[in-house]
Design a protein around this nucleic acid. Structure first.
Length: 641
DNA sequence: GCCGGAACGC
DNA sequence: GCGTTCCGGC
């Protein structure tokens, strides 16, 4: 009888809606937009623009027309469409790029990560407009290893089983059905896109999203040959590694045959089950969940988990948790030597596991309660408030956009995350890190700053204070410190990170206690066991550094436990709504965070930081094909009408 | 051009 | 819920 809520993650509702929700079979505007964006055919009408997730509607009328065609609303026009887009502000799916006409920006933190985890948005700068905002420099997240070998080596295990396939299928079905049933008025999109997508397969759908020129194939390829959860390598059945598409999406369901009844693509996409490690202890290892032991294995797992978490967090707490697979490029720093490896490879999440279960419950018969739970964002108060409090309204209206933007580029995200977690939490004790403070945050941040457009975005996610400083990537430091990057990281618990984030963003997920599928963990060489206690301790920046490894672990463990207990508080923060409520929430979260930290020695999140510092873990991440599929589904949705 | 309230439909 | 339509205001 677990309820999803108990163990589940919390995602924003919208994240799920897309494909799966039975209720909402119709395509949503943002899906549509994404779809257009990824189709080259429409680049003259709408295209990615500079920043991460930022796009410009070059031909508003045309976009409106297409949208209208899609929805069978011939009367559609940009004015109306834009109204719809504005509604996304409150949901934080989108925000307006101020000062730029017809330019909006996706809050990919949530959006992409959840629904399109692998998408690298933004790179704006170097990327041609026609190309999706993909990773150019590596400042944004992108797919992991560029070389197969790299990938393979570490990510072998990554492959995801076919769990998602079913989901994807399902999704596809739903989306496709859209309105096409009886009345088929194919939209142009459909025609143009449909053919290729369908013909080729879902993976194509993403083409637009991914940078065409990226060497994804190698990656994908890797993915394609996904081993089963057990870690057995097996050729991917139908994966067509497309050079362009990162996902080895296979039309057919995987062996798992899990259907995700209610699962949304987002979920499905999530993680890869077999990964050895889990993002957070709580999530992951089975053993960790209930008890803590110092067994080498446990420790390993734990470490891995931490590392993952760290990475995940680095990116974005929410997203990464779910999609650890995503590799997050760290800002290139001169100091760092290997950018390539730098990406954080998010390891597969246990989530997938849970997801699969969840999905399975429906059809597969796995019957695991779904661990996920998501909270909806509180609706904007809007008018009432306005009415009741004019002052409030005024402020709200003026800053409407600010609310929505939580997304500011991966780099920022990471920063924000860190910032949120670290700073607030107080990692203070670290003397080692002195340099860290000054470390540049990230290219991205700079960019953002340049573009103030996002100010809003940042507002959401970052706290001004937190924003830049601390997060500095401890990774870097870490690297320096350990060169190898070992990974004893003490990742923050999601919650903790979230605290801030949660506030900002609102959604938090909880990690399910479900154990990762394969204990593949073993497979992992573990990053780091290298980090021996002795070394490790010193390394960790946050208060952990002085703490003995065991202690640290223990502490970590307890934190996790705590967190789990707490659950998380994620709330959406509507500016409006939150204004008042926020305080509470915030306080709460913070408190919680602190407590956690305090638990052992007050060091708090040092561990997390530590984690951050960790060097790049093996690339466990593999894009989950499921995700791809899911994503692909979105494209399929278009076909309706 | 953009914003957001309000009413309304599905 | 998710828009769609209309509309007044900036």
């Amino acid at each position: 009888m677990k309820t999803p809520a108990d163990t589940g993650f919390a995602f924003p509702e919208w994240a799920y809606k897309p494909e799966s929700s039975p209720g909402s079979r119709q395509i949503q505007l943002w899906h549509f937009i994404l779809e257009l964006l990824r189709k080259e055919e429409y680049h003259d009408v709408i295209a990615w623009q500079g920043d991460y997730g930022e796009f410009v509607i070059k031909d508003p009328d045309e976009v409106a027309r297409l949208w209208g065609a899609r929805k069978c609303k011939p009367q559609m026009n940009y004015d109306k469409l834009s109204r719809a887009l504005r509604y996304y502000y409150n949901k934080r799916i989108l925000h307006k790029t101020k000062g730029k006409r017809f330019t909006y920006k996706f809050n990919f933190n949530k959006l992409v990560l959840v629904n399109y985890p692998f998408i690298d948005m933004g790179s704006g700068r170097g990327v041609p407009q026609s190309a999706p905002p993909v990773p150019t420099g590596g400042t944004h997240f992108r797919f992991p290893p560029s070389t197969p070998s790299e990938v393979l080596s570490s990510s072998e295990e990554l492959r995801s089983p076919g769990m998602f396939s079913s989901v994807a299928r399902r999704m596809a079905r739903g989306s496709v059905s859209d309105c096409s049933d009886g009345t088929s008025t194919n939209s142009e999109l459909e025609e143009a896109v449909g053919a290729d997508e369908r013909g080729v397969g879902p993976d194509r759908a993403f083409r637009g999203l991914l940078p065409p020129r990226l060497p994804h194939d190698s990656l994908f390829r890797v993915y394609g040959g996904a081993p089963n959860p057990a870690g057995l390598p097996r050729p991917a059945p139908r994966v067509h590694p497309e050079p362009l598409s990162p996902f080895p999406v296979s039309p057919l369901p995987g062996p798992g045959g899990l259907l995700a009844p209610t699962l949304s693509p987002a979920l499905s996409m999530t993680p890869t089950p077999h990964l050895p490690y889990t993002p957070s202890p709580s999530l992951s290892s089975p053993m960790m969940g209930s008890h803590f032991s110092f067994n080498p294995e446990d420790m390993k797992h734990y470490l891995q988990a931490h590392t993952q978490s760290v990475y995940n967090y680095h990116l974005s707490p929410r997203a990464f948790l779910h999609y650890p697979n995503i590799v997050i490029p760290q800002p290139h720093r001169p100091t760092l030597e290997k950018p390539a490896t730098h990406h954080l490879h998010a390891p597969p999440l246990p989530l997938s596991h849970s997801l699969s279960q969840h999905a399975g419950a429906g059809e597969d018969g796995q019957q695991h309660p779904s661990p996920f739970k998501f909270k909806l964002q509180p609706p904007p108060l809007g008018r009432k408030q306005r009415e009741s409090g004019s002052s409030l309204a005024a402020s709200a209206s003026s800053s409407s956009s600010s609310l929505s933007s939580s997304f500011t580029g991966s780099g920022q995200t990471s920063n924000s995350v860190l910032a949120a977690g670290a700073p607030k939490i107080k990692v203070e004790p670290i003397s080692d890190i002195e340099s860290e403070e000054e470390v540049e945050v990230t290219d991205i941040s700079e960019e953002d700053e340049l573009n103030h457009n996002d100010e809003d975005a940042r507002g959401d996610i970052f706290t001004p204070a937190a924003r830049h400083h601390h997060h500095h990537h401890q990774l870097n430091n870490h690297h320096q410190a350990n060169g190898n990057g070992s990974s004893h990281s003490a990742p923050l618990p999601p919650h903790s990170n979230h605290d801030d984030d949660a506030e900002d963003d609102e959604e938090v997920f909880k990690t399910p206690a479900t154990p990762p599928i394969g204990s593949a963990g073993l497979a992992f060489p573990l990053i780091s066991l290298k980090s021996e206690p002795g070394q490790a301790a010193p390394i960790s920046p946050g208060g952990t550094r002085c703490i003995p490894l065991k202690l640290r672990f223990k502490r970590r463990w307890s934190e996790d436990q705590k967190m789990e207990a707490d659950g998380e508080r994620d709330e959406a923060e509507d500016k409006k709504v939150r204004a008042e409520g926020e305080e509470e929430v915030e306080g709460k979260t913070e408190e919680a965070g602190r407590r956690v930290g305090e638990v052992e020695n007050g060091g708090g999140r040092g561990g997390v930081i530590l984690g951050l510092m960790l060097p790049p873990p093996p690339t466990q991440r593999r894009a989950s094909s499921e995700l791809q599929r899911a994503t692909a589904q979105l494209s399929l949705e278009n076909t309706g009408c």
